[in-house]
């Protein structure tokens, strides 16, 4: 079985975000870039599945749509244990354009499962996975929190409002995954980092997919009012604040 894990390259979570050109674009000056945390969980589990010989997974490929600047992130994916990385060489404007790039690659290469993190830490769109599935006219399962293989078939666990559902699948699907799929991201070890240098990182040209939306401006939120401190012995006062002032009790 071949897995394709989609990787978004995002600013480190602790980045202090700033915008440039009259607040119209993200200012990347001095920003540390990381594997999108949800994609990192997806990759972690994909690599674990491959490394456990009880599972039918034989190959893990990672893909990113981005400029040459995303390559350190793809190298890190290789160090974590992906076999091969693909970069589609364009800076996408929105999720639709990203998804169309990945879908056109997936059309030409057979992957049993395409795996996407449920959200990206930059634009928080939660869109690419579902869009890829629709471009490919294939099944998608979202909010996936676990996967197990039984007799060559995958049992996928998803969260729904009422609880959990377990879906049997034989592949040819997009999985949109969240925490639980893996619980903690894998840290690359020295051997992984050394091996990553030998692994293929293929760069392919983008197609002419269009975007349907555009980011035209950004704002930082209003600074929050200062916290009101309540003495630890005055819990009645806190309850009063919560009921009369905040109106939440």
């Amino acid at each position: 079985m071949k897995l394709l894990v989609c990787i978004s390259n995002v600013p480190d979570t602790t980045t202090k975000v700033r915008f440039a050109d009259n607040q119209t674009r993200f200012d990347a000056t001095g920003v540390q870039w990381i594997i999108n945390p949800w994609d990192e969980l997806a990759l972690t589990r994909a690599v674990d599945l491959k490394e456990d010989s009880n599972n039918p997974v034989s190959e893990v490929v990672v893909i990113n749509v981005g400029s040459v600047e995303t390559e350190p992130t793809l190298r890190k994916c290789l160090a974590i244990g992906a076999d091969k990385a693909i970069r589609i060489d364009t800076v996408p404007k929105d999720a639709f354009q990203t998804a169309k790039q990945i879908a056109s690659l997936a059309q030409k290469n057979a992957f049993d499962f395409i795996i996407c993190g449920i959200e990206s830490g930059d634009y928080n769109s939660s869109s690419v996975g579902g869009m890829i599935a629709e471009f490919l006219d294939t099944v998608s399962v979202s909010s996936v929190s676990d996967i197990q293989f039984q007799e060559g078939k995958a049992i996928v666990e998803r969260d729904v409002a009422a609880g959990k559902e377990y879906i049997q699948m034989e592949g040819n699907a997009v999985l949109i995954v969240q925490k639980g799929f893996a619980k903690e991201p894998k840290i690359p070890n020295m051997r992984g980092i050394m091996m990553a240098r030998q692994k293929p990182l293929e760069v392919i040209p983008a197609n002419d997919a269009n975007a349907l939306t555009e980011y035209i401006g950004f704002q930082l939120p209003e600074p929050k009012a200062k916290v009101k401190m309540v003495n630890a012995d005055q819990m009645t006062e806190l309850v009063n604040f919560l009921s009369k002032e905040a109106k939440v009790l």
Binding site: G130, E134, S140, S143, L212
Partner: peptide, 19 residues
């Protein structure tokens, strides 16, 4: 939410509608 995230992106492609 979970269900919106499951359907809306697919619908965006199906209808060629920005999401």
């Amino acid at each position: 939410n979970n269900e919106g995230k499951a359907i809306a992106p697919r619908l965006s492609v199906k209808l060629n509608a920005g999401f």
